[in-house]
Amino acid sequence: MITLFYNFEKRGEIIKRRITIKDIAKELGVNPSTVSRALNDKPGVNLELKKKIKEKAEELGYILSFQAKSLRTKKTMTIGIILSDIKNPFFLDFLDGVEKIFFPRKYKMLLATSNEDLEKEKTYLKWFLEHGVDGIIIAPTIGKNNKNNLNLLRRIKKSGIPVVLYDRKIEEAESEFDTVTINNYHAIVSAIKYLVRDMGHKNLGLCLIEPMVYTLKERYKGFIDGCNLFNVKYKNEWIIVLSNNERENMKRLKAIFDKTGPTAIIATNHYITQQILKAAKRYNRKIPSDLSLIAFDDNIENELYEVPITTIKQPVLLIGKNAATIMMGRLDGEDVIPQNIVLNTELIIRNSVQKL
């Protein structure tokens, strides 16, 4: 059992205090500076003594002082990461990729979720600065009329704190920040090509959600251009924009299940896929006999539904790894022009699209 505090007597009382390097040095009869070098894996301590020091530190329950190390190194070894929706499995997989890069380098993650709220995002960015993070990785929120926190992000970067954007770009500042995104446009065009050329569909719909962030705008553009490219019919009423109000969503989705509706629809994120499947159940419609469906984001449940869902798969783990790798490079002193990494998606074909 690890004891976190050292007991000593003072005027007949037992006093508890945090274990220090001096306590370990006293126990072993060595200089405190030797203990410090050993615990921080610095040169100048032979392997046998280093092992003894680390074992004694473990025995006494020594915990490295975060504040003291930060004052010495001018680093907190902490990266602030802002997610837009912590309930979305995309962001959990993204964090898995980030952690695989940060953990071996002994960097910690300070997490926040913006919920697509600009003021909340701004508050978290300021809290990160107060905490002294070494860098910030963010999926930037884009509000109504393209409002964003670009000016604050610019000030943060100018102050010497690296900023990496992932999943989305801020369009008016594409060349200013490191970014890791996917080719959202091409992902939708490829899905349309599969629906039209391979599966014989000619009437297509698209389902989006408010707010229309960068990724959804790109997917919308891909849909319009893809339909025109492959000479496919679509109607404005077949382009459904959902919200976080499920009751309202069910009303809006009714149009796609009408006999005069599309034969196939593309969902543009995981939540939308769930809403379409709920609507199909409510209106007693079947996937794919009444409506074919392509989802975006390949989560495990897509394989487990009664009809497994054909899905556009994002390389989410790779997005996380790339964002973290860029951040490590910046913290190591790399001074190159901003990197803009664009990754490709993969269409995972299952059983939710009917051949016509």
Score class of each variant (00 low, 15 high):
Thr3Glu: 13
Leu4Lys: 10
Tyr6Thr: 12
Asn7Lys: 15
Asn7Glu: 13
Glu13Asp: 12
Ile15Tyr: 09
Ala25Thr: 07
Glu27Asn: 06
Glu27Trp: 01
Leu28Met: 09
Val35Met: 02
Ser36Thr: 15
Leu39Pro: 11
Asp41Pro: 13
Lys42Ile: 10
Glu48Pro: 12
Leu49Asn: 03
Leu49Asp: 02
Lys51Trp: 04
Gly61Thr: 03
Tyr62Trp: 10
Tyr62Pro: 05
Ile63Asp: 05
Leu64Gln: 08
Ser65Phe: 11
Ser65Thr: 09
Ser65Ile: 10
Phe66Ile: 12
Gln67Arg: 05
Ser70Gln: 13
Lys75Gly: 04
Met77Cys: 13
Ile81His: 00
Leu83Ile: 08
Asp85Arg: 06
Pro89Leu: 02
Phe90Ser: 01
Phe90Tyr: 10
Leu92Gly: 06
Leu95Pro: 06
Gly97Glu: 01
Val98Ile: 14
Lys100Asn: 09
Ile101Cys: 04
Phe103Asp: 07
Arg105Trp: 08
Lys106Ala: 08
Tyr107Ser: 02
Lys108Gly: 06
Leu110Tyr: 02
Leu110Gly: 00
Leu111Thr: 00
Thr113Leu: 01
Ser114Cys: 08
Asp117Tyr: 02
Glu119Ala: 06
Glu119Lys: 02
Lys122Thr: 07
Tyr124Asn: 04
Leu125Gly: 04
Gly132Cys: 10
Pro140Phe: 08
Asn146Met: 14
Asn148Ser: 15
Leu153Tyr: 03
Arg155Gly: 08
Ile156Pro: 01
Lys158Arg: 11
Lys158Thr: 12
Ser159Gln: 01
Ser159Ile: 14
Ser159Asn: 05
Val164Thr: 05
Val164Asp: 01
Val164Lys: 00
Lys169Arg: 14
Lys169Trp: 05
Asp178Asn: 12
Thr181Ala: 03
Thr181Trp: 07
Asn184Gln: 05
Tyr185Asn: 01
Tyr185Val: 02
His186Asn: 11
Ala187Ser: 07
Ile188Pro: 05
Val189His: 03
Ala191Val: 10
Ile192Arg: 00
Lys193Asp: 06
Tyr194His: 12
Arg197Leu: 14
Leu204Glu: 03
Leu204Phe: 03
Leu206Met: 08
Glu210His: 06
Pro211Glu: 02
Leu216Ile: 11
Glu218Val: 09
Leu229Cys: 03
Val232Gly: 02
Lys233Cys: 13
Tyr234Ile: 15
Glu237Ala: 07
Glu237Asp: 13
Trp238Asn: 01
Ile239Gln: 01
Ile240His: 01
Leu242Ala: 02
Asn244Pro: 06
Glu248Ser: 05
Ala255Leu: 15
Phe257Val: 13
Ile265Leu: 06
Ile265Thr: 07
Ile266Asn: 01
Ile266Thr: 06
His270Trp: 12
Tyr271Leu: 14
Tyr271Met: 15
Gln274Leu: 15
Ala279Lys: 03
Lys286Leu: 12
Asp290Val: 13
Ser292Val: 11
Leu293Val: 15
Ala295Asn: 04
Phe296Glu: 04
Asp298Leu: 01
Asp298Ser: 06
Asn299Ile: 15
Ile300Asn: 04
Glu303Ala: 09
Ile309Cys: 06
Thr310Tyr: 12
Lys313Arg: 14
Lys313Ala: 10
Gln314Cys: 10
Lys321Thr: 08
Asn322Arg: 09
Ala323Phe: 08
Thr325Asp: 10
Ile326Arg: 01
Met327Thr: 02
Arg330His: 04
Asp332Arg: 13
Ile337Lys: 14
Gln339Glu: 14
Val342Cys: 09
Leu343Arg: 02
Thr345Val: 11
Arg350Gly: 03
Asn351Tyr: 07
Asn351Gly: 11
Val353Cys: 02
Val353Lys: 00
